[in-house]
């Protein structure tokens, strides 16, 4: 609980929510809050995977492309007569495969994560364009149900988001692997000297990030029920922004899944949702979300400063 209150994004989220609650009576209704969660779930799931990578002081710029390649594979298979669930499974397999390749390139070849995933951002999107022949594809209605179906009154995307968050929190906080991720993120060389399998940790971290990207992609795909050549573009930035708003450091060793990623992902969607409710000029959306992200980052840096210590 103390964690929650020391997270500046929480205060920013509370302020944003207060403003919209004052401006629109619909904002604080249960239905609308569920909507915010549904809208946050895709980016939130991707951001959870990203948090693992950020914890090791890495970065994965390719998640948007992974979402697209998965969707393209799924679209082609389903369009070719496969059942919807087989397409979904194939999509989910694409993510870890990409993640594995990143992990191997980073650990075996010694390349920096930024550059590896920057180049694979292009290569994977290129593969996706090749697979889809650069065409848009519509998906059958079965797929859409994945996004709208409710279990115990809660929509499936929110379930998925919740499960991913809880599982990840548990992995980071309670398992051996999770503690090793933090150690590697603080100082990889020291972790190696301490006898940890640093390469193994890194490979698994990118694997997890790839898997989350594919799952987040699946959720987004179900909501759109169409694959366009721009699907997933720039999602890497949304995911990184959500993770960092949630307290992850780009320099590794610091970050958390709960409440961090949840708050980070929800903050951005709350802004969109609230602006929509108060009928704001759609052109103003990016300006205002940019401003809110900036404020949250500013609040975080001020907090670090107040906590003292030289940078």
């Amino acid at each position: 609980m103390r964690d929650l209150l020391t997270l500046p994004a929480v205060w920013v989220l509370a302020a944003v929510a207060a403003v919209f609650a004052a401006l629109s009576p619909q904002f604080l209704t249960a239905g609308n809050l569920i909507n915010v969660l549904i809208q946050s779930s895709a980016v939130g799931i991707v951001a959870t995977g990203m948090t693992f990578v950020l914890l090791t002081a890495g970065i994965d710029l390719s998640v948007g492309s992974v979402m697209f390649l998965g969707a393209a594979v799924c679209g082609v298979l389903v369009g070719g007569g496969w059942p919807w669930w087989a397409g979904a499974v194939a999509m989910l397999a694409v993510g870890p495969a990409c993640g594995l390749l990143h992990g191997l390139a980073i650990t075996r070849l010694g390349l920096t994560p930024f550059v590896v995933t920057l180049s694979s951002l292009f290569v994977i999107r290129g593969l996706g364009l090749w697979v889809s022949r650069t065409r848009a594809m519509n998906l059958p209605d079965d797929f859409r149900q994945l996004a709208t179906e409710r279990v115990l009154g809660v929509p499936v995307p929110v379930w998925l988001f919740g499960v991913v968050l809880l599982a990840s929190q548990w992995v980071v906080g309670r398992t051996r692997f999770g503690r090793h991720v933090l150690a590697v993120g603080h100082d990889a060389a020291a972790a190696r000297k301490a006898g940890l399998d640093v390469g193994g940790v890194l490979v698994r971290v990118y694997l997890i990030c790839g898997a989350c990207a594919a799952l987040g992609g699946l959720v987004a795909l179900a909501q759109l029920s169409a694959v366009s050549p721009t699907f997933g573009r720039d999602r890497e930035f949304d995911a990184i922004a959500a993770a960092v708003l949630g307290g992850a450091s780009l320099f590794g060793g610091r970050g958390n899944v709960l409440p961090g990623v949840l708050v980070g992902a929800v903050t951005i969607q709350t802004v969109y949702n609230g602006l929509n409710l108060i009928d704001a000029d759609p052109y103003s959306y990016p300006v205002i979300t940019g401003g809110v992200v900036f404020l949250a980052v500013l609040a975080d840096s001020l907090r670090n400063r107040l906590r003292g210590g030289r940078p």
Partner: peptide, 22 residues
């Protein structure tokens, strides 16, 4: 010489980092 401890982990986790009991 440069201590191999991880300040972001607990004392106990540092002591048994490579063989945390499960």
């Amino acid at each position: 010489q440069e201590l191999n401890l991880f300040p972001n982990l607990s004392v106990g986790e540092n002591l048994f980092l490579d063989r945390l009991p499960t």
